[in-house]
Write a protein that binds this DNA or RNA. Structure first.
Lengths: 245, 245
DNA sequence: AAAAACCCTGACCAAATGGTCAAAAAGGGG
DNA sequence: CCCCTTTTTGACCATTTGGTCAGGGTTTTT
């Protein structure tokens, strides 16, 4: 497959170890410093996020992304080479924000605070970028072919590191015994379910769409669930709407 | 693509992966009362479940299903008309088994027992038919275009009915206050995550694949999580390995 | 045995889709 | 204005894919 004259910087030509964020473009100070490029790439990625989230990789057509971005199809190929390249670039972008919430689990923190912050962060992400979550979920469901390396290295290491923190908290008697790994799986599951399966939740709740209050309710519920699971005292929610025991 | 074998069209080839023991061999009246049809439809649906789960609706080709079922493509069209028809038939089949687990929530039961049975059922389903779960998850993520009506009617009614049971249990002081709807969402999330996101869980646990023990661990964890959330006493797991608080 | 109903399938489309390319436009430094 | 790089895009393929169909086979009924 001969590459065209267009140079695709972000395409995934390499086997499967591109987890880096957008390749840094500063190498070429030519022209306007690649401003046009960055601007257009961002525009395309934004459109791609929405389309990929709704249709999945195979269901997404370059044409659809092009229309969503208001650009001719050939333009996408100019910037990202192939559909796969665009998808990889998008995944990198999504993955970046995914593990950051882990930072809340630090040994010096109080478990209850860490969990509260984590849940709040996750749910905010769910509210602000539900599409990103869906793109990721879709990738995993279909075998994580593009991110398996990432899962087995960076994510696993990160989880193990934070699981150790949880284990220490348990040993120190700061919280009830819980399997740290499965606790994380549960945390991911209950938070992401409101992004990935939003239509199901909305349907059951008889709402046309999940609103902010719904997600706040969800966040409160999740936090309660986590705190009880970890044997931690329940802090009253900030809004104070809830009636306490 | 999935199948590399070259043994595509042998008219007399018998499948060896069929594990459908027909109830009675002696008392069957006629050799055929639409039996061929049922047999073939089942065979196709089984193949379709695997392929759709792995590739999603758009990523699945009739050709791939045909190869997985060891039948010519035209045969699938003969039985199901269109790809959409096949998909819908599959979806119905999957949905059928999906709400049945709800039956455990009956007013006369003890909450702890009901939850235990529910979790066990769900996890057994996850173990035995992970593909079915993925097909469903995929459908929901992509907007539930084929099942939205089902979600808004049957599922919603069912959930409301069972939520009322939970609410009664809470009122009766049999369990701690929890939002019943969100409790269900959490239950679905934490159980299905082991089917839908199995590769992620396996990757983090450094296993090539989730085994039975992993799912048993998960089930124990989930049950503990649920019981604590509902303020119910923890029964010791069957294996007795765990030491309780 | 003949008719009827059901089953099977290779061969064949029309449409959609990822990708290519050449030529033209825009941009900018000298 | 000229030269070089970057960007833009319409037109154009090769391949894939869902779907059709006519004709042949097999089983059941009359």
């Amino acid at each position: 497959m001969p590459r065209g004259g267009a140079t695709a910087r972000n395409s995934g030509e390499e086997p499967q170890d591109q987890i880096r964020p957008l390749a840094d473009v500063s190498a070429l100070p030519r022209s306007n410093g690649g401003r046009t490029r960055r601007l257009n790439e961002d525009r395309i990625l934004r459109a791609a996020e929405a389309v990929f989230a709704e249709a999945g990789f195979n269901g997404t057509t370059m044409q659809a992304i092009a229309e969503a971005a208001n650009l001719p199809k050939a333009n996408l190929h100019y910037y990202f080479g192939t559909k796969e390249g665009l998808y990889r670039a998008l995944l990198n972008r999504v993955l970046d924000g995914w593990v950051d919430a882990f930072d809340h689990f630090r040994p010096d923190r109080e478990p209850a605070d860490a969990f509260a912050d984590y849940v709040r962060d996750k749910m905010r992400f769910t509210r602000q970028r539900p599409m990103a979550s869906k793109v990721f979920a879709n990738e995993i469901i279909h075998g994580a072919q593009h991110v398996s390396h990432y899962l087995k290295t960076k994510l696993r290491d990160r989880v193990n590191e934070k699981a150790a923190v949880i284990a220490d908290w348990i040993r120190a008697g700061k919280m009830a015994p819980v399997d740290p790994h499965h606790l994380f799986f549960s945390l991911w599951a209950v938070t992401q379910t409101y992004a990935d399966f939003d239509v199901q939740v909305a349907a059951v709740l008889a709402k046309p769409k999940l609103g902010r209050e719904d997600l706040d309710d969800a966040a409160n519920h999740i936090l309660r669930l986590v705190l009880r699971t970890c044997g931690l005292p329940e802090a009253r929610p900030k809004t104070g709407i809830e009636h306490h025991t």
